[in-house]
Amino acid sequence: MAALNYIRSNEKKLKVIKSNSITFDNDTKPMAQHQLQPENWVDLYADYLFNYAIGRISDSEVAKDLVQETFMAGLKSAKNYKGDAAERTWLIAILKRKVIDYYRKINSNKGKAEVRMNYSAQSDAEGDWLEEQVADPFSSFENSNIENEELGLAIQDCISKLPKKQALVFTMKTIQGISTEDICNELDINPSNLWVMIHRARTALMDCLNQNWF
């Protein structure tokens, strides 16, 4: 399993290198420049940014505010956008700063910034200290957490490529877990209509994930 993960991560790196070299080629031509379209931001990137933020700040209200602030900051500094990065990459970069600022702010009080370290909860515990502190090399917990976050972003990316109505139905059903009846009432469609849309969305998603994930 570890070996498999290793191979997979290497493959991903390779992909990144490949895609980087492609954009590098494009950068030499001025016509390949990216442009900002703030009117589409919320539809295209809100969920993606939100997932990114919530991976770092588990409070969904704060995450929502940060996404909002990111859009505002993006709008404000739109004239500084040089166009060598894709719109989403640029927004993620802003969001990253916002997350760091958030943690700086909540830790600004001197008392909160002070970190107290104890060897362990039971300070009278005896035994081989170092051995107990070493990370378990067989633990797949950290790795799979990172991988799951990447997977979430990949799925979100694929969802944003779906037609708008299908994406809406799919997120309502799968992510927000709203019942079929409620969705039908809200969107004014009948159940068989809904299932057809779900079917198309799932088929498209599987194709997309096959290309981008496996």
């Binding site: 969920d47 997932n51 996404v67 799925i155 992510i175 927000q176």
Partner: peptide, 9 residues
């Protein structure tokens, strides 16, 4: 989808 622990607005 379950594993990815997705969130949305």
């Amino acid at each position: 989808c379950d594993k990815a622990n997705l969130h949305s607005l």
